[in-house]
Amino acid sequence: MKFTVGVAMTPLDQLAPLARTAEEVGFSSIALPDSLFFMETQAADYPYTPDGSRMWNADTPWVDPLIAAAAMGAVTTEIEFYTQVLKLGSRNPVLLARQVGSVANLTGDRFGFGVGIGWAPEEFEWCGAPYARRGARVDEMIEVLKLILGGGMVEYHGEFFDFDRLQMSPAPSRPVPFYIGGHTEVALRRAARVGDGWTSAMIKFDDLVSVIARLKELREQYGRADLPYEIQTVCIDRFGKDGYAELADAGVTDTIVVPWIFDGLGFDSPLEAKQDSLRKFADTYLGAPS
């Protein structure tokens, strides 16, 4: 099982040095979150907290995850990056294809594309995208993105997106993996049908086991059970060597961790303290040198 560092709500000037340290001590990848803006009042509940409130405020630092991946990729050589997850619904897939292809090329194909629909109506409407029928629209977006990123001259004529023949060069030298987020049945079906993996929000172990079993059923239904598949998770009730062993036995391929939180530090803690947490975690769980 691989270990990935989550860097949500990290001050921007810490991202590059944290990437270097994570690579040095043996982490496989860095998970990059997405948040467009903080609306003063929210029209919908945030789906991953008990009371629907957000875990951040108007002053919490965020950076576009694609720009972050390019910046962190420029100061590293091996560690990989993936969005966890980028909210597709508020974006345009043709413009996004150019961005994703650029990041894949600039990082030497060390980039995976974790995607979800998005939960906030404001993010759709204020960016000029409809909130209604967002699931069907995102399904088309994934088709468009994969088509363009595959390279060559392509065209697309769908319900939501329509364009004649075009080409974006250079195409990534290998397919960009798509990791699909979401815990609902429709999201799991999307992950099984078109994803190279599934990526979770915060989830408890028993729920995770149920999701993995359902994904297996769905992948068999879609004839994709024999293809490589990632299970990336943020499990909130399994930690330590025994806990990580349970996750691996359950079928998790990639655990996303925030070592400085385990050490009682905050998201805005000093860089050096976070680097020490990365080294400590690696010494304990990755077998990396100090």
Score class of each variant (00 low, 15 high):
residue 2 K to V: 06
residue 3 F to N: 02
residue 3 F to R: 05
residue 6 G to S: 07
residue 7 V to S: 01
residue 17 P to V: 09
residue 20 R to Q: 15
residue 21 T to W: 01
residue 22 A to M: 09
residue 22 A to C: 11
residue 23 E to A: 01
residue 24 E to S: 15
residue 25 V to A: 10
residue 26 G to Y: 03
residue 31 A to G: 11
residue 32 L to T: 05
residue 35 S to M: 08
residue 36 L to Y: 07
residue 39 M to I: 10
residue 42 Q to K: 08
residue 42 Q to V: 09
residue 42 Q to D: 10
residue 43 A to L: 13
residue 46 Y to H: 05
residue 47 P to H: 06
residue 47 P to T: 04
residue 52 G to I: 06
residue 53 S to D: 13
residue 53 S to L: 13
residue 55 M to Y: 14
residue 55 M to R: 13
residue 56 W to V: 08
residue 56 W to Y: 15
residue 56 W to M: 05
residue 58 A to L: 09
residue 58 A to T: 09
residue 61 P to E: 01
residue 62 W to V: 00
residue 65 P to L: 03
residue 70 A to N: 06
residue 71 A to P: 00
residue 79 I to E: 05
residue 90 S to C: 11
residue 92 N to L: 12
residue 93 P to A: 13
residue 97 A to W: 00
residue 97 A to N: 10
residue 98 R to P: 02
residue 98 R to E: 12
residue 99 Q to T: 15
residue 99 Q to I: 10
residue 101 G to A: 13
residue 102 S to C: 13
residue 105 N to F: 09
residue 106 L to Q: 14
residue 110 R to E: 11
residue 112 G to R: 14
residue 117 I to H: 01
residue 118 G to F: 02
residue 119 W to N: 04
residue 122 E to T: 04
residue 123 E to N: 03
residue 125 E to A: 00
residue 128 G to D: 08
residue 128 G to S: 07
residue 129 A to I: 03
residue 130 P to Q: 07
residue 131 Y to R: 06
residue 132 A to C: 01
residue 134 R to F: 08
residue 138 V to N: 05
residue 140 E to G: 12
residue 141 M to Y: 07
residue 141 M to L: 12
residue 142 I to Q: 10
residue 144 V to S: 04
residue 148 I to R: 04
residue 151 G to S: 15
residue 153 M to R: 14
residue 154 V to E: 12
residue 155 E to A: 14
residue 155 E to C: 15
residue 159 E to C: 13
residue 162 D to C: 15
residue 163 F to E: 08
residue 163 F to M: 02
residue 164 D to Q: 14
residue 165 R to W: 12
residue 168 M to V: 15
residue 171 A to M: 11
residue 173 S to W: 11
residue 174 R to V: 12
residue 176 V to E: 11
residue 179 Y to I: 10
residue 183 H to K: 07
residue 185 E to I: 08
residue 188 L to G: 02
residue 197 G to Q: 03
residue 200 S to H: 03
residue 200 S to Q: 04
residue 200 S to E: 05
residue 202 M to P: 10
residue 206 D to V: 02
residue 209 V to S: 02
residue 211 V to H: 10
residue 211 V to T: 09
residue 214 R to K: 14
residue 215 L to A: 04
residue 216 K to C: 08
residue 218 L to A: 09
residue 222 Y to H: 15
residue 225 A to I: 07
residue 233 T to M: 03
residue 237 D to G: 01
residue 238 R to D: 01
residue 239 F to R: 12
residue 240 G to E: 04
residue 241 K to M: 14
residue 241 K to W: 10
residue 252 V to R: 04
residue 252 V to S: 00
residue 253 T to L: 07
residue 260 W to E: 06
residue 260 W to M: 04
residue 261 I to R: 09
residue 264 G to W: 09
residue 264 G to R: 07
residue 266 G to T: 11
residue 267 F to G: 03
residue 268 D to S: 12
residue 269 S to W: 03
residue 270 P to I: 01
residue 274 K to Y: 00
residue 280 K to G: 05
residue 280 K to T: 14
residue 287 G to P: 00
